[in-house]
């Protein structure tokens, strides 16, 4: 079963449109939604959750159509959409007491454990926390009420590399439970490369691809060669290329490159950048 699925999701604004996006996240997996700033990642998530009204398509969470008020469904979802909008006067302790009255399965011990693991001070007021600590607080709340699905929009924004790594570790721990799934959007591709099972590229409101990460790595490779050698390659095999004084560096489809050519593994970042440039 899919933990999360959207089909033909469409939202139009003046000057921007989320154009019929289709995505599926199987249960127990992590799907990374990669896109540059303004690509439509937040719009995709908010429209799917019915926070903003869609113009077309549909969304499902745990097989249930997302329509109208989905307050009860949100008991099973941990959502982080950037920094949480909490009052500057609240401390982490008070936030926990508030959430205790909001989530039916709020787990205070788990919240404290996560705060401890993330080195998050619970006695400081929200207005006194750094951007990174605010994000940590949002993540700790999302993980402390027995959610089966995490939907995280740019959760590592403002975090230093050590904490980012810690957050990724926590996400991997979360998916150790068979039915736990994560949809995570980011433009920090290296974070997603570590943890995701599935990868989706979004550019200008359009979905460029959505595939298993391993299949993607097997499908594409990087070719380094001389210009004259490169010209012998079938143009259909080339996703994108760049010239330098050392020759040509190209992201290519492995199956369309003649045998014997040596290809190095492609990083998600390279693949994404090349695809966006060629789009």
């Amino acid at each position: 079963m899919n933990a999360f699925a959207i089909r033909g999701l469409t939202k139009r604004y003046d000057g921007f449109a989320l154009d019929s996006v289709t995505l599926e996240l199987p249960e127990g997996c992590i799907l990374g939604l990669i896109g540059e700033n303004g690509a439509g990642k937040t719009t995709t998530i908010k429209t799917a959750l019915n926070i903003i009204k869609k113009d077309g398509g549909e969304a499902e969470i745990f097989g249930q159509k997302v329509e109208g008020d989905i307050a009860s469904l949100k008991e099973d979802i941990g959502i982080v959409l950037g920094e949480p909008g909490l009052s500057g006067c609240l401390t982490g302790e008070e936030v926990a007491r508030i959430m205790e009255g909001i989530f039916a399965r709020w787990d205070n011990a788990e919240f404290r454990r996560l705060a401890d693991e993330l080195d998050l001070p619970l006695t400081k007021k929200y207005k006194e926390l750094s951007q990174g600590n605010r994000m940590k607080l949002g993540i700790a709340v999302a993980l402390s009420h027995g959610a089966k699905l995490l939907i995280l929009d740019e959760p590592t924004n403002g975090l230093d590399p050590v904490v980012r790594d810690k957050v990724m570790e926590i996400l991997m721990d979360f998916t150790r439970e068979e039915n736990h799934s994560v949809l995570i959007s980011s433009h920090i591709v290296s974070d997603l490369e570590k943890v995701c099972d599935y990868i989706a590229f979004l550019h200008n409101g359009k979905l460029m691809l959505c595939e298993e990460k391993d299949a993607l790595m097997e499908e594409y490779g990087v070719l380094h060669c001389k210009r004259e050698d490169f010209e012998a390659i079938d143009p259909a095999a080339v996703v994108g290329s760049s010239d330098s004084i050392y020759g040509v560096s190209a992201v290519v489809r492995r199956d369309a490159v003649p045998e014997g050519w040596e290809l190095s593994p492609v990083s998600l970042e390279d693949l994404f950048v090349v695809m966006v440039k060629e789009a």
Binding site: A71, S72, K74, G85, L86, S87, F103
Partner: peptide, 15 residues
């Protein structure tokens, strides 16, 4: 303080 946006992500209905 953007609480209303945050509340959209919590299991509380608009009502």
């Amino acid at each position: 303080e953007r609480w209303l946006d945050y509340a959209d992500t919590l299991p509380v209905s608009t009502n």
